[in-house]
Design a protein around this nucleic acid. Structure first.
Lengths: 119, 119, 119, 119
DNA sequence: GTGGTCTAGACCACG
DNA sequence: GTGGTCTAGACCACG
């Protein structure tokens, strides 16, 4: 899986990495149990600080998306906790995006289509 | 219109204000041409600095959502520019939210429903 | 001559009026000696404060573009002072505009064309 | 690159800084990818507040001229967006300058010459 | 009375 | 060490 950092983005690098791994797990590009690159390998490959990658992995771990151990490194969790509900933060964000889309003249159908595509 | 700040949020105050005004315009709670509270009034009401409110207004102005002039204060623009497309940032955010929702066990239907509600 | 205010502009109203009258004189739309509307008439017509129009006229007078007297109101000067040089402020502004145009991918020819058109 | 503020100018300090950096990029004095001084360094050097410099940088960033990140500071963007057209504001300003120049007795050739020089 | 600018100073997240 | 945010307070131009 290729992780690509957008240097123009306001989103911190560690969060961009975290987001792309979450998207990768959801899309199936990363399978349950699959090994992630080591912190050092990913940092080297992306030309960034190991601290940054480490921060991404710790966040993913605390969120229950991955497991880490000293022996095997990090891998995708087999049984990700399913709360069954969208977090309040994500609801707010969704509302913001839908509002901006609407004001930009994007049709509801177009957004529904994107949700279908991304899901 | 009531603007409510979440002081524990990672989203900066000026951005929370900006977001809620955008949502208010989209929902119709704020009508085209409607006066917004003055910078000072909103700052006082919310217990924050005028500079912070001013930053929100300037951002909204630069994005084309509102107008400001020294005589009349700030008001919602009548003719908001419609690009007709969702920004790349918002597409990415939507993808992230949908991915997280899916991994949390939220059904696609539930998300589509929320989009319908917010639009 | 029709004066049109852009409410979205950051340029103060009194300056917008002043600018359009200067452009009107240069283009010949306003002839030397021609009577300008009274402060009250123009203010009424444009739905703005008489103070604002008065400020425009006083500026134009101090710059030597118009003459005012209590009897005849304001009219375009017959003999506008010709320094023969572009002011430092205008040179700087021109440099800024040309720089922005260049960075926006506007060709030099296009700018020269606009200068030809406006002169 | 030396940035020089005119304290008697009506143009706000943050805008003067912004303008000079834009001119610097266009003239090649600032190369694509080149580091800008840090907010603190520039503020100290110019004897102004860091907030003021920060405002300039944020404006330049929002306009797509520079990038900022917390690690590397600010630097000139490699691929500045090219709309290919002169903004309406700049067209109006150009028209104003040309009109004033004409009324001051500045020849068209002189202006064309300046455009050639600045481009 | 309004928004816009600026200061001095502080704290924070990112890396 | 960097930019980003925020405060408290001041002054200004515009209208």
């Amino acid at each position: 899986m290729i992780i690509r950092i957008d240097e123009y983005s306001d989103i911190p690098i560690y969060m961009q990495i975290r987001n792309q791994i979450v998207i990768g797990i959801s899309s199936g590009e990363l399978s349950p149990g699959e090994q992630l690159p080591t912190v050092r390998a990913l940092a080297l490959e992306m030309g960034i600080n190991t601290m940054t990658v480490s921060k991404s992995y710790q966040l993913l771990k605390s969120e229950g998306y991955i497991l880490t151990d000293r022996k095997n490194g990090a891998r995708v969790r087999e049984n990700i906790n399913q709360s069954g509900v969208l977090s309040d933060e994500n609801k707010k964000e969704l509302k913001r995006i839908v509002s901006e889309a609407r004001l930009s003249g994007v049709s509801k159908e177009k957004i529904l289509e994107l949700v279908e595509e991304y899901y």
